[in-house]
Design a binder for these strands. Sequence first.
RNA 1: GUGCCCGUAGCUCAGUUGGAUAGAGCAUCGGAUUUCUAAUCCGACGGUCGGAGGUUCGAAUCCUCCCGGGCACGCCA
Length: 634
Amino acid sequence: MSAFSDPIALLDSAFRSATSAAFPEVGDTDPLITASKQAALGDFQANVAMSLSKRVGKPPREVAGAIVAKATSNPELAQIAEPFTDKSIAGPGFINIRLKGDALAALLTSIDTKSLGVPVPQVKETIAVDLCGVNLAKQMHVGHLRATIIGDALARVNERLGHNVVRQNHLGDWGLPIAMVTAKIAADAKAGKINLDTLKLDDLDRAYKAAQRECTADEDGLASVEKFNLGPKARAELEEQVNGAREKLAAAKLTLVKLQSHDPEIYAVWERIAKITVDECVAVCARLHAIVRAEDTAGESSYSNELGEVVDDLVKRGIAVESDGALVVHLDGPDDLNDHGQKINEPCIIRKSDGGFLYATTDLAGIRRRVRQFGASLLVYAVDARQSLHFQQVFAAARKAGYAKMQSGQNAILRHAGFGMVLGDDGRPFKTRSGENVKLTDLIDEAHERAGVEVNRRSAALPEAERNKIAEVVGVAAIKYADLCNDRMKDYVFSFDRMVAFEGNTGPYLLYAFARIQSILRKAQAEKSIDTGPNAPFRKAPLAIVQPQEKTLALAILRYPGALRSMADSCEPHRLCGFLYDLAGAFSSFYDACPVLNADNEATVLSRLRLCDLTGRVLHDGLTTLGLPTVERM
RNA sequence: GUGCCCGUAGCUCAGUUGGAUAGAGCAUCGGAUUUCUAAUCCGACGGUCGGAGGUUCGAAUCCUCCCGGGCACGCCA
């Protein structure tokens, strides 16, 4: 962030020099500046005295006193902070700092720009974000919700920080399961049972499940029947099932070979299935306000020509070796560590003993493409936490193979942004009553519908079309915020009942704060004849930070660039959520205590209007960065 | 068996590099609207931070062990 608008950076600098002036023998020391938890104590605090106490052999309060004495004579500090008093040093040796109102106003003024204080990056990086991860011929369901929402948010925050982001929807569109459904669809089409031109994803979804079932032989059941001699009828039924399944499986394997050799007939059917799937995926993502376009699709099939080459390369260089007929990359070298710096015991299998490739092979090719072809320096994978070991293996294997190496010679950073499961009220994975995966379209429909009830009740005066639009946005925001607002790694309980309360720490609360701000701006124009255009005078009006609620709001706004940085660095969207909730809360308190348009003098009206507008822009920018849509009124 | 994740208020969750009296929301109770949207605000109630040791001036946070829950562990993706 621009050091100019960041109070922590300013205080850090001032106290850093004060500390080294007071204790030259310890050299440059982090003054440990943090925001105070309790506003009564101060706005910020320096915790350096306690940690320094032992090193300089003096009691912490004495250390604090010496630092404060030096800081007092710093003119830059005197400009932004209230003078120290005998109460500034408190407890074991905390140095409490309070900012001057006019300093806050100056800081706010400097952040009140188009960029909202977010600096242009020194180096514009390319960042590849793996997200969404749908499968061919399957409806998007709750299992794709987090990969889509979290992945999109991580992509957005890096874009917001000025980087070049490549989204990669690693479509599961290759391999035996896909061949099974392709074989079935091709056979049904040939038999005239279905029409490829009018086929819907729902039809494919059913065919996929049916093909899975038909191809899975109950070998265990047959073995039991034989073992326990359960009678000729049971035996005959099972034999028929098993023989049928074996036949279907054989057909699927044949189809897989045809698919891999681009047999025109089979390939055309597959392409049709792929198009239906991707079109629907893109449509559902659009409803979710997640940016996943057709051109972001990078299916497993797109690597099919590279896998043999990758494996040959690894074998030739001795990185992959044979083991029980399969090819594996052993990860027992001193540099083959996981993210915890620990050894990885399990080798990474890149080719099965029957010659087939695995998803590790595809992911290796994916890393190679993302680093070499896209020039990515950071690869983020928004994928289920259960695949943690898999990614640790693939990452280590890629580094060992040199596939993560950039032109600079350094390795690109490989990060698995894993996430927990979506649970139902019963603490079990979220399913429909009949035990099916909940389709995302149904999920969005229900949120839309439930939000509609609230919107109709609360905003009956608005035109119906607008109410419907608001309900859709509120419903989607509720779903997305609920997913993003807590720690990624944890499972979370999905509850429409809690979401539709729309109270407290929810997406709609944030939307509401934004809508109130827009309402004030509309009223300023309509009822007070205040110009609110792009070049309106109020945008340059002097800011006066006087009331405690104004101060709390100002301090919150100033944290925005840091909150974005924190989310990007940690790949944790809930950090930005927490910031936005604080900001919306600070605004709501301000709104309650400080009249804007009805303030007692013109200068205050304009100052507060500017503060509202700035808050609104930060809220909107933050919500957009999370991928939450907004409404002008609700 | 090995590894990873998790355990904080009745419920759902935050808690930054180790900092002061562990914070929100929901629920419960009490208040606030002749003025900018009450999807709001203000207050009260509510805690052995899973347990036990250890490091530290200071531990929800770091280390060790234990308990409980979830997940993953070579030819599925």
